[in-house]
């Protein structure tokens, strides 16, 4: 992957219209705009109900310049399969099929269809924009909500369970290309999307996507908070390419260096208000263990 991509390398062409229905400070706006530039015009999108459904606009107005199929919540990867089947039948195989689902549509209700499509080796790129709860319905806990986080269905004590590791589940399917990315590092996402396009078969990108309304921070802090998640070692940027794991971008730069304490991230968002000092200490130890494994070139995966 070239490390030289800058904002100037990105096409001027916009596939997402400004003035769409995203909230101010929406992390999804950043990644959707950027990744679509990498995907290019010859792309068909598949979208389950999620914040993106709203961002894309209300009939008869559409915010996206690419053809987009809205599908039922559980069926994203199966619908992508169907688009691919028709494209094969019609000899239109050059068109890229990209699915865009939130964390609920990926890790929870969408997981069966995603697993089936990955097992079949369907030729799509699946983007999971992970804002760590059901934001479109009003911040209910999801499988990828981190432990102790306050949501409207874990309103007092926070979520008892830990975050589901979806990229690891995808890795267990033997995908040729898996990457994580963050809304705070859009060029990294751009490069990974370009790289994903060079593979065939199912490809999976898991994107940490800060959400001001759901996480409890001011809209101008989106990028700052996304960076803090990476800089504290809580969310790591990496690729799993043909089974080989490697840290990338900012996370790779942090190898051998001191990380920011996880508490620096937690104190920026009201969703972490239920965390006790003991919780924070426990999470810090988990993060340290994970990074020790990285340092010893011993991937936790």
């Amino acid at each position: 992957m070239t490390a030289k991509t800058t904002i100037l390398n990105l096409t001027d062409e916009e596939f997402v219209h400004p003035g769409n229905r995203a909230c101010s400070g929406c992390g999804l706006s950043i990644i959707y705009r950027t990744a679509l530039k990498a995907l290019g015009r010859d792309t068909i999108l598949v979208v389950p109900p999620s914040c993106l459904t709203v961002l894309q606009g209300l009939y008869p107005v559409a915010a996206t310049q690419l053809p987009s199929l809205n599908v039922t919540f559980a069926s994203t990867a199966a619908a992508a399969t169907g688009v691919l089947g028709a494209l094969r039948a019609q000899g239109r195989e050059k068109t890229t099929v990209a699915a865009w689902a939130g964390d609920g549509g990926t890790a929870d209700i969408g997981l069966q269809a995603l697993s089936g499509a990955c097992e079949r080796g369907e030729n799509f790129i699946f983007f999971c924009y992970d804002n760590e709860a059901y934001m479109n319905t009003g911040v209910q806990r999801s499988g990828t909500t981190p432990q102790h986080v306050l949501t409207t269905t874990t309103p007092i004590s926070g979520k008892p369970q830990k975050k589901k590791d979806v990229p690891a589940i995808m890795a267990a399917h033997g995908l040729d290309y898996i990457a994580t990315a963050s809304a705070a590092y859009p060029i990294d996402l751009y490069d990974k999307t370009i790289k994903a396009k060079t593979f065939t078969g199912p490809r999976y990108l898991h994107i940490h996507t800060p959400c001001p309304a759901g996480w409890g921070f001011l809209p101008q802090m989106t990028v700052k908070i996304g960076r803090l998640a990476v800089e504290t070692g809580l969310f790591d940027l990496y690729e799993i390419e043909n089974g080989r794991f490697r840290l990338t971008g900012q996370s790779a730069k942090m190898l051998g260096k001191k990380r920011l304490p996880v508490g620096d991230y937690f104190k920026t968002q009201s969703r972490f208000k239920a965390l006790t000092d003991a919780h924070i200490e426990e999470i810090q130890q988990d993060v340290d263990r994970k990074w020790n494994a990285y340092e010893n070139n011993d991937s936790p995966r």
Partner: peptide
């Protein structure tokens, strides 16, 4: 396309039909 559920079977048909087949 040997899908993993009936829900997905119809999802495939819905999407393939939407794509013109």
């Amino acid at each position: 396309i040997p899908v993993e559920s009936e829900h997905s079977a119809l999802a495939v048909c819905i999407a393939a039909s939407s794509a013109g087949s």
